[in-house]
């Protein structure tokens, strides 16, 4: 029992320990890489953003176009995350617990948004919902606008983020056998009671983790959204698109100010993720 306590887990058996020099070199390489590719760029974003003073910074982030982009970004996340939680948990549940025709296909399809370039995801939406697209005439006849409008952006965001929750939950469900759920059934629980009282508590941390990753990507997505957005200022630009527009207009201070907001959102997400990981370890040693 005591052999697996946290303090013992970190000490390697002597045979596996490297000489001090090797260890120092490995750690140095790791830290240098981190500094070069992560810390310096993040620091650069904030320095650039604040270059012209905090007043200019505030003016840049408070201009109406940027505020609209902020709201659209939050809206996308607010729609995509719950949808993908529902879909991800359902898909993971089906794959982990049932045998059905098409199971392997479903499993492979979940990975699709990861393996396909986001630009292609965006194009496929244009092909389906654009004016010349498959559903285009029907949508036009009913006065609905998807591509170059908010619905298209939300759809694109949802599509590129749908693997996150499923990918986090699936391995957790697969590692558990169904006997606690069966026990709940023999005790008289109905299907939804089993799900709420037994299954959900057991996958809670995986779902939350998936939510955080899904949210981060939903707010940061560029490629797919860029294709379907149409870049209508103040209406169909998300924060990442707004950054690009400002940058292309040589408004570097503005571009970096908006970028710094996105970076802040990312840092908050990262902190939340770390907290969750710590909390999850506390609950399940």
């Amino acid at each position: 029992m005591n052999a697996s306590s946290p303090s013992a887990r970190h000490s390697l058996p002597p045979a596996l320990r490297e000489p001090v020099l090797v260890r120092a070199a490995l750690i140095a390489v790791g830290l240098a890489f981190l500094a070069l590719f992560v810390l310096v760029p993040v620091a650069a974003v904030f320095t650039q953003a604040l270059e012209k003073g905090s007043l200019a910074y505030l003016r840049a982030v408070l201009q109406p176009e940027v505020r609209a982009a902020m709201w659209l970004t939050l809206l996308c996340a607010a729609v995509a995350v719950p949808l993908n939680v529902a879909f991800g948990v359902a898909a993971a549940w089906a794959i982990a617990r049932y045998e059905f025709p098409g199971k392997q296909l479903l499993n492979a399809l979940i990975d699709l948004p990861f393996s396909v370039s986001p630009v292609i995801s965006g194009l496929s939406l244009t092909l389906l919902f654009g004016a010349q697209g498959f559903f285009g005439p029907w949508l036009a006849a009913h006065g609905l606008k998807v591509v170059f409008a908010v619905p298209g952006i939300v759809l694109a965001t949802t599509f590129v983020t749908f693997p996150f929750v499923a990918k986090e939950v699936l391995p957790v469900l697969q590692a558990q056998n169904a006997d606690q759920e069966e026990a709940a059934l023999t005790l008289g629980a109905r299907g939804w009671q089993v799900f709420l009282r037994v299954t959900l508590p057991r996958i809670k941390w995986a779902v939350l983790y998936g939510v955080i990753l899904c949210n981060a990507r939903a707010m940061g997505e560029f490629g797919a959204v860029s294709v379907v957005s149409g870049h209508i200022r103040g209406r169909t630009n998300t924060l990442p698109l707004q950054v690009e527009i400002l940058y292309n207009e040589y408004d570097f201070a503005g571009a970096f100010a908006v970028a710094s907001m996105l970076t802040l959102l990312a840092l908050v997400t990262l902190a939340a993720k770390k907290l969750l990981a710590l909390r999850a370890r506390e609950v399940r040693p």
Partner: peptide
Amino acid sequence: VQKRGVGFVFQGHALFEH
């Protein structure tokens, strides 16, 4: 199963760990 009125004890106890 819910309506059979049986009590079931599993080999691996299957207690609700949470």
